[in-house]
């Protein structure tokens, strides 16, 4: 199978993720879309690794996963505390730096 097709899929996933970040209000969904974009990038890295025949892309994909895991921990914690204080998970409600 032609590896370029993986790149098309990665681009499609990235676009879906970006669109989701821009148009959805629910913080959880926005967060999931961000994950989608990260994974689209990972897919692209792995595809490039295969196309160029070296492992650089795969190593970077692992790094991305580690960073994404840390990010999920911090991000979810923020969203939970935001929801506790405002009783809403909408990102537009959190447009001010104060309560």
């Amino acid at each position: 199978m032609n590896p370029v097709n993986y790149l098309y899929l990665a681009a499609l996933l990235f676009t879906i993720g970006a669109t989701g970040v821009l148009i959805r209000r629910n913080a959880i969904v926005v967060f999931m879309c961000v994950e989608l974009m990260l994974n689209a990038c990972n897919l692209a890295f792995v595809a490039f690794s295969r196309m160029h025949g070296n492992l650089d892309g795969q190593i970077i994909a692992f790094f991305t996963m580690v960073v994404a895991a840390a990010e999920v921990v911090v991000g979810l914690a923020i969203i939970v505390s935001l929801f506790r204080s405002r009783h809403s998970a909408s990102v537009d409600d959190a447009s001010l730096m104060k309560l």
């Binding site: 970006a18 970040v21 821009l22 148009i23 209000r25 926005v30 990102v91 537009d92 959190a94 447009s95 001010l96 730096m97």
Partner: peptide, 13 residues
């Protein structure tokens, strides 16, 4: 500088 995270995201994109 309106405080909306999504508007900043548009700028970034």
């Amino acid at each position: 500088q309106n405080g909306y995270a999504r508007s900043y995201a548009v700028s970034m994109f």
